[in-house]
Amino acid sequence: MMPYYKFNYFGLDTSLVIAVIIGIGFGFALERGGFGNARILAAQFYFYNMRVLKVMFTAIVTAMLGLFYFTWIGWLDLSLVYTIDTYIIPQIVGGLILGIGFVIGGYCPGTSIVSAATGRYDGMMYFAGMFFGIFVFGEMFPWLENFYNSTPMGRVTLPDFLGLSYGLVVFLVVAMALGAFAAAEWGEKVRFKITGRIKE
C-alpha cells in the first residue's frame, strides 16, 4: 500500500536518492513552465501573463485528482500523507508577507532556486535574501512564538471544514480552476487586443 516510505518499503538513505530524483522532476517542470524567469512570475500580478495561475492550478488539480482516485481504488492511505497543521491567522499573515515579497523579489523560494541554477543573478540575490529572512525569523522566534502557535486547528481539510464530501470539493476545485483558466485565456486575448503587448 502507498505511500511506500510510510510502510518501510525502503529506508532513509534510499529516500534521499528519491528526494534528488523528485527534486530534479520538480526543478525541470518549474523551468519548463517559465518559473525561472522573474518577469513572467511578476506579470501574473499585472495581468499580463497568467502563466503562474495556469501552471499552479493545473498542478494542484492533477495531484488532487490523483490523490482522490488512488485513495478510491484503495492503493493509497491518505491519512498517512503528511499535511501541515492549520494555524489559520499566522498562515494568512505569513501569506500576505510572502505575497508582498513575491512582487518585490519576483520569485518564490522554489522558483528562485531554478532561476539561480539557470544563471539569473537576481535569482541568486533573492536566494541569499531568503537566507537572511529566515535567519531574522529565527532570531525573532522567541518573540514570535506565541503568535506562531496561535489559532491552532490541527489537521483540517476543506471537506472537513465545509462539511462537504471529498468528491464534491474536488469537483468544485476543478470547476473553479477550469473557470479561472477560461477567464485567463480570455483576459490575455483582450489585453493583447488593447495593448498589442505580446506575452512571453
Binding site: W72, G167, V170, F171
Partner: peptide, 11 residues
C-alpha cells in the same frame, strides 16, 4: 474526472 468524483462522493 471531477464529475465522476462528485458521483463517488467520499473516496
Amino acid at each position: 474526472l471531477a464529475i465522476f468524483a462528485l458521483v463517488i462522493g467520499n473516496s
